[in-house]
Write a protein that binds this DNA or RNA. Sequence first.
DNA 1: CGTCAGGTTGAGGATGATCAACGAATGTGG
DNA 2: CCACATTCGTTGATCATCCTCAACCTGACG
Lengths: 263, 263
Amino acid sequence: MNIGESGFGPGAAGPLIRKIRRFVHLSVQAEKALAALEGRRRAVAPHTRLIEQEQRYDHLSVLIQGSAIRYKLLPDGRRQVVNFVLPGDIIGLRGCVFEQAFYSVTTLEACVVSPLEPNEIQDFVGTHPSLGAAVFWVTALEHTRLTERLVTLRRRSAQHRVAYLLLDLHERLEWVGLAGNGVFVLPVTQELIADTIGLSLVHVSRTLRRLQTGGLVSLSRRAVHIRDIDELAHLADYRFATRTRANLGLLPRSLFEFGSEVI
Amino acid sequence: MNIGESGFGPGAAGPLIRKIRRFVHLSVQAEKALAALEGRRRAVAPHTRLIEQEQRYDHLSVLIQGSAIRYKLLPDGRRQVVNFVLPGDIIGLRGCVFEQAFYSVTTLEACVVSPLEPNEIQDFVGTHPSLGAAVFWVTALEHTRLTERLVTLRRRSAQHRVAYLLLDLHERLEWVGLAGNGVFVLPVTQELIADTIGLSLVHVSRTLRRLQTGGLVSLSRRAVHIRDIDELAHLADYRFATRTRANLGLLPRSLFEFGSEVI
DNA sequence: CGTCAGGTTGAGGATGATCAACGAATGTGG
DNA sequence: CCACATTCGTTGATCATCCTCAACCTGACG
């Protein structure tokens, strides 16, 4: 059933499959279809804008390798990062529902994506209805995380926020095998962190410094090392999403059956 | 095609239909099914907890009349309101996807809901696949608004935040015909506002006072009157969601066709 | 060796939190 | 209809967090 586990090379299990597998049991059939999708690879240069806010767009793809951000430029010129796009995330899905983009998407580094032509998705999901279900599920997961962030980041101190973001990134990268034991590689700058959690660059710097001298984390140029995940999680009141178990039993079969192995 | 427009009495077009109609064109078929759903009415007493955070749940319903909040109690005892539940909103939808609730839902006043048995939804959406599409669309809309709030509320002053919340509520109520010209009825207390936008009660009080003495808004016990919507919107940098037009053309027909009148 | 992006550190100031007390409105029971 | 309780709102004073401005440092890279 596993076509390959190590890395995301062609023919290996892609990050989207890995992520979904983490929570729901995929049928062989569904995995095959997804693998076919993730098999396509297109390189994207660093700092390329994939989607532009306020614009019509039809770019739809799965991020396979690298990282990107969804962000919005506010009228006063400041930038607010909505969230990080990590391998296994779908880019431009909301474009299926709304005409205009609400925010821009830009790659942070050299990336690999699996593109999907807009009209193609009709046949694709039409042939494999279970994939529509998977997409729905992924959407729900993202919504949940967004809410959690909304709740958690408000009214909490700078330390809380920074810690939370690091743990959030770590967990999401861990889902797709790109993080473990507190270590992950990501080109996060302090400015990026600031724009994400809504603090000034300066204050993020100070906060990180305190966390680092406290021995809790260490950041290098492009890697993050959380020395003691549990302690940091305690500090940030971070709940790992292991409890985010799927409960697809209640869902209409027409939308949510995964081949023969209904969850 | 319109079964009735005034109020939400039995037989009239319910708030969910009205909301959806606002953005996508519903087929007669789909509207009938929705009307049947919204036809059921169950009264709920004020301050009744419909869903409890961290609990398994299967409560699924559409709010017809009244108001509620989705909130979360943080470990330190504070309450964070995720958002208001207004007529036309679906309660407990995420319970279809996840086993545990991420937050609680409590009525703010006497409410009327249209309940849906969890196993019943299978037949319901199974018989009318277009309703699954409608649900998907509503979900996307909510997700979008959540993101907007995340982006807008961070890094903005107390005035911005308060103004934003009032405009948000007004617009959503206006979708279902419960607000207009800046006036709507809702039992919002200042504590509720504070817990929603992440400010202290005291500071909300001061901010509201300034807005009121400035003649921009006026709050009575249970009604809100925005004197000059445009000016307040300008102050809060609020964008009305008229541009939130649906773009279902890209979607797989299997999920998203609304009867014969595909959008 | 200069440039530039990214990071560090200091000083002063503003926004909003907290504590506290008081006032107003609503509801309840007699 | 009144007295009381309770919830909701107002206002003042003090304090902490975080922002802004500003200067300087560091490493990468041409």
